[in-house]
Design a protein around this nucleic acid. Sequence first.
DNA 1: AGCAGAGCGGAACGATCCGTTCCACTGCTA
DNA 2: TAGCAGTGGAACGGATCGTTCCGCTCTGCT
Lengths: 205, 205
Amino acid sequence: MSGRRQQAARNDTVILDAAREVFLADPKAPIAAVAERAGVGISALYRRYSSKEELLRRLCHDGLLLFVAQAQAALAEPDPWRGLTGFLAEIVDADVHSLTVHLAGTFTPTPEMGATARAAGELAGRLVQRALDDGSLRPDAVVADVTLLLESCAAVRVPDPARTRRLRARHLALLLDGLAADRSRTDLPGPPPTAAELNWRWRTP
Amino acid sequence: MSGRRQQAARNDTVILDAAREVFLADPKAPIAAVAERAGVGISALYRRYSSKEELLRRLCHDGLLLFVAQAQAALAEPDPWRGLTGFLAEIVDADVHSLTVHLAGTFTPTPEMGATARAAGELAGRLVQRALDDGSLRPDAVVADVTLLLESCAAVRVPDPARTRRLRARHLALLLDGLAADRSRTDLPGPPPTAAELNWRWRTP
DNA sequence: AGCAGAGCGGAACGATCCGTTCCACTGCTA
DNA sequence: TAGCAGTGGAACGGATCGTTCCGCTCTGCT
């Protein structure tokens, strides 16, 4: 395959990459910004996605699928603590959380996405439970604390993307030292967040 | 003083409170939302502030001043660790960081605000240095880590404001356990953020 | 008592932004 | 070579929002 067809196929990925970059930098960016970044016209976008919302859904679902894949890989790691921390490092580094959470609310989720999100939550729960049973995670931590951890790492943000990744890794290390069992001393105040509190973005009104 | 004058004076604070609530919930909220929340007309707003930007500036500067005041109070606490942690708890609880950082960029800062921001940074630096000298803060932490900590706590957010405060307190406790000296073990990866990296929002283009 | 105007509510205006459509054009493909 | 998949980008229409403006009320002063 070559010529026009190949160019079109290449555009598929170019557009998706551009959209990821643009919407990660600014979840409310206009569609035209994506086209400009991709170096294509607006038509090339609308030929592939019938609306902005559909593109956002695709991006978000891709993020969820990556989350699930990484979580499954992490469960294969024999050491629960290494599995959990490695997983978190990957998710933070790939900025999956921005993809899934910051974009949620800008579109109405599909049932399929809801299912994937449930699967993601279930896998994360297993990763955390393993580390709790193992004794490597402080006993008063819950899976919701890990969700908040991801949210808080995504909030670390400087103009340079590469630098942002480094700073997030540093922040994550700090948080993990706070989560490790052998040095927890302060009692965590208040009840942990509930599932409903954390999933409010996925409301389908 | 009573009657119309008193009502007007009361509106001063009602409007400011409403603006704080509204813009904390959504930094890009329209002016009309503030008026509605305050239970006044739009004119009552424009009588006091010549533009939306001026109102935002006022809000932000108030936040900075509160930051400075709390930091000075914390320096009066004899125990450096208690001073630092108590200070952070206050700032997180009052959501000062959202006031100052999330609002920055939505207006052009005044020179006076720049000066206050510098003072705030200097005071925070002293609080951190005290805890470093004291040995209660892990030696590889820097003041920029504390800035990121505030940023990350502000990212913890659920629809209910009261619940948000509780969850942030919990998240802060986790982070502080990671920052305390006597249990740090993991080396923090990468160089800490520089001042320029964290102050980019205060750019005046 | 009466009036000037401070204070206010909210409709209306104009600017801006943005998603989507549409049309002309290009160059592969059959 | 005819036709159409693929595209660029101008143009449209709707929505949003900051700001202005006009008419009203009721106070505080003379």
